[in-house]
Amino acid sequence: MTEASPVHNPPLQISGLSLSFGGVQALDGVSFRVEPGTIHAIIGPNGAGKTTLLNCISGQYTPKGKIRYGDTELTRIRAHRRIKLGIARTFQHINVFTEQTVLENMMVGGHHRLNRGLISRCLFWGRWGCRDEERALQHEAFELLEKLEMKQWWNLPAGELSYGLQKKLELGRALMAQPGLLLLDEPMAGMTEHEKKELSGWIAGINRDEAITIVMIEHDMSVVQSLSHFTVVLDFGRKIAEGTPAEVVKDERVRKAYLGED
C-alpha cells in the first residue's frame, strides 16, 4: 500500500444513496466518504450495485440521496457538465472509439477544455480559427501517449489495439480530462498478470504524482490490497463493511458474502 498523497481536490461525500429499478433495489442507503488523494476500492459480489454506484457519481443515473463533491451537489449537475468539475471515468467493458485513431481517442478526453465555437471550427485557420487550441490538444494527447508508452500506435485505429492496450487507452483518455476524481470500473478485468502489474503501477503513480483521487471497482483482492487505501464492501445494494483492505478481509460478513466462506 502506498501513502495517500497531499492534495487540493475536494472530498467526495456520499450519503443515503438509494436507487431501484422496477422491483430491484440496486442501491439501498449507501453512505461513505472518499478523502482527497486516496484510492478507494469498491468490492462486492456480482449484482451488488458497484457499477450502479459509479454510474450515479458520473451521472447516468439520478439516485435518491446526496453526492457532494466539495461544495457541489452532484445530483443537480447534468452528466456532461460533471467532467468540468474534474470527474472522469473508465468503463467495465471496452468503450474506445474503434474506428478513430488512438490519438483521436485521447483528444476526445480533453474535449471539454476546448472553447472555440462553430464558426471558428469552420474557418480553422487564422485569428478566428480554432487551429491553435486543436494543435495544443493534439500535442498534449501525444505527450501523454508517450508517457503511457503507447506513442508508436498513435495513428492506428483504436480497434486494432490489443485488449490490454485498449483498456490502457481508456485510462489515458480519462486522464486527458485532467480529472481530480477518477472513477475506474474494473480496470484490470481480463488482463494478464503482467499487464495487471504494470497497470497497478500506473494507477499508483497517477494517484501519487498527480494527486488524483481514485474510486475503483476491482475483483482481484491482491490488487485491492496492494493498491487501495480504503475499501467499501457492497452486497445487495448495501454497504456491509468498510475500512483498510486488511481490516475488511478479516470482517466476518465480508468473508461470508464475498469471499465465499461459511
Binding site: H80, Q100, M107, H111, R121, C122, C130, E134
Partner: peptide, 26 residues
Amino acid sequence: NLLRSGLGRSMEAIRDRPVVAQLMGM
C-alpha cells in the same frame, strides 16, 4: 475543417458511443 476540429470528433463520438461522449463533456 469541421472534421478535424472538435466538432467532427464529438459528432462521431455521439454516433458511436453516446454515453462515453456525454461523460466526456459533450
